[in-house]
Amino acid sequence: MADNQNNSAALTVKNLSVYFGKNEAVKNVSLDIAARAVTAIIGPSGCGKSTFLRAINRMHELNPDARMEGEIKLFGDDIYSKNVQPVVVRRRVGMVFQKSNPFPTMSINENVTVGLRLNGIRDKKILSERTEQSLRMAALWDEVKDRLSAPAISLSGGQQQRLCIARALAVQPEVLLMDEPASALDPLATSKIEDLILTLKKDYTIVIVTHNMQQAARASDFTAFFYMGELVEFGPTTKIFTSPANKRTEDYVTGRFG
């Protein structure tokens, strides 16, 4: 997929603005998101992080009031071009949500394979291979391998979140978006997710929204700081956290406001 694109951008965002009615939630944001790296998005509540993220896989279109301007390219393809359907974009750009949302009527196994089955894959062997592979990547395999047909909601909160990650991974997306994936979890489960992110970036491009500065500093390669819908500063994580160029960034990462 994204072979030898290690240094190039997976996503190119140009002059992106997103509106809810008259309210401009994301204001003229441009940035490149590197392939096979973790990009963290930080900023105070309500600054447009989730909105930005959802524009990347066109999830904001589910809201009839939402409207976007600008351009987003995924490995060179304009995802908002007329002949591209959101379904295809979302297939290539997976998403994990703040609150875990496994399908409660499905088993663990079915949750992982549902995306593949939608894509017409029926072969039992492929499905079970992909299940194991995705669950291993999500660091859940050892915990659930003996009860794959148990209902998904029988898992703990942290396990459910990792199941959702496995579900997103199973369709082999090119980019994985994570909107505060660990904010509802206890510290142990959170550190598991962080480890997971570090392993996943070998194969995936990851964009993660977080309120946790330590998490951003530990897990990400690049950091973007949003404030009131604007991109204030974007750069390598070490730079943002040690020598930010902008006063507001400094105030935020050192915990002086927000």
């Binding site: 359907q85 379904v87 295809v88 017409g120």
Partner: peptide, 11 residues
């Protein structure tokens, strides 16, 4: 990179 059954699904 569209799925093979894409048209059928849309239909």
């Amino acid at each position: 990179m569209t799925a093979p059954n894409h048209n059928w699904r849309q239909f």
